[in-house]
């Protein structure tokens, strides 16, 4: 039973991170129907920026929570700026192009960003400092949940709620939903579609950066390639829940996290990534619309 609980919490933690990244995928897909392959790289850049800023601050004598907060804020801002720039360079000129073009451009961008970090920084794994303070109220349950797990789950929950409110209640959120429904019609009604798409990328990238910082704190080390696998898995989560749907992304992330956690715990830990991919293939074959998605009929 204890082992089960351990796996349950482990899966929840993992799943929360996938959900955070999946939100960005799902939002972008909802609006411009593009799998943003570079999204995983934005997550990696977020983690790297946080590491760099935190290291510099620590070497200049700062300690504790303030380092974490400052580094996180800078990393989130930078990731948002990267997301914005990537969209302007690689996707915006291709709005009218056939579907395959932006997809290839996205793959190119992803390879570019990976190698940019590889060449400018290092190919080694860098240790990521754990800057979270101890949370004494968790001590009785320390066998199941540590401070990082707690913070990850809490942050994901807060971010999801905040995002849902943003999309549901603000003017910009309404514009986003309108654009997702029908871009041409939204444009006719005076929605600045380019601004909406930019906002989507900025918000999605910021969420990915939060995910990146959290996972780096959890795992304790990062390198330039972490975005690739995380990106595919988050995409799996987004598809699993129904791409384009925000609660779907969270649900998909959690389902994927638990699948991985239980499969590695009870079956075999060698094939950790294989389970995720198998789940992706199965869901796409059996129910391509996802758990919460509605299947659409293509009209001519």
């Amino acid at each position: 039973m204890d082992y089960f609980l351990e796996l349950l919490i482990g899966g929840l933690t993992r799943g929360s991170i996938y959900a955070l990244i999946a939100l960005g995928y799902t939002m972008v897909y909802g609006i411009i129907e593009l799998i943003n392959f570079a999204h995983g790289e934005i997550y990696m850049l977020g983690a790297f920026t946080a590491l760099i800023v935190a290291s510099v601050l620590t070497l200049h004598g700062m300690t504790g929570l303030s380092v974490l907060i400052l580094a996180s804020v800078v990393a989130v801002l930078y990731a948002a700026a990267y997301g914005f720039t990537v969209e302007k360079i690689a996707y915006k000129p291709l709005r009218q192009a056939p579907r395959l073009s932006p997809l290839i451009s996205a793959i190119g961008m992803s390879i570019f960003l990976q190698n940019y970090v590889l060449l400018a920084q290092t190919s080694d794994f860098l240790p990521f400092p754990n800057l979270l303070p101890a949370l004494p109220f968790l001590d009785p349950y320390s066998r199941f949940i540590g401070p990082t797990e707690f913070v990850i789950v809490l942050t994901t929950a807060l971010a999801t709620v905040a995002l849902s409110c943003f999309i549901k209640f603000t003017r910009l959120g309404r514009a986003m939903r309108a654009t997702a429904q029908d871009r041409g019609m939204a444009m006719l009604l005076g929605v600045n579609v380019n601004a909406v798409i930019s906002t989507t990328f900025i918000v999605g990238s910021a969420l990915a950066a939060i995910g990146g910082i959290l996972i780096a704190t959890h795992v304790g080390r990062i390198n330039f390639a972490i975005g690739f696998i995380a990106g595919i898995k988050a995409f799996t989560a987004a598809v699993l829940g129904g791409i384009g749907s925000i609660p779907g992304a969270v649900l998909g992330g959690l389902v994927l996290g638990w699948t991985e956690s239980f499969a590695t715990g009870y079956l075999s830990s060698d094939y950790e990534d294989v389970f995720a991919f198998c789940l992706l293939v199965l869901i796409l074959i059996l129910r391509p619309a996802g758990i919460l998605g509605r299947s659409t009929v293509q009209k001519v």
């Binding site: 360079i89 190119g108 961008m109 190698n115």
Partner: peptide, 17 residues
């Protein structure tokens, strides 16, 4: 040669654009 993959990524984006 160390910029090889960087080159491939750039090629893919620029060619598409």
């Amino acid at each position: 040669s160390s910029y090889r993959m960087l080159l491939f990524g750039t090629v893919m984006v620029l060619m598409m654009v």
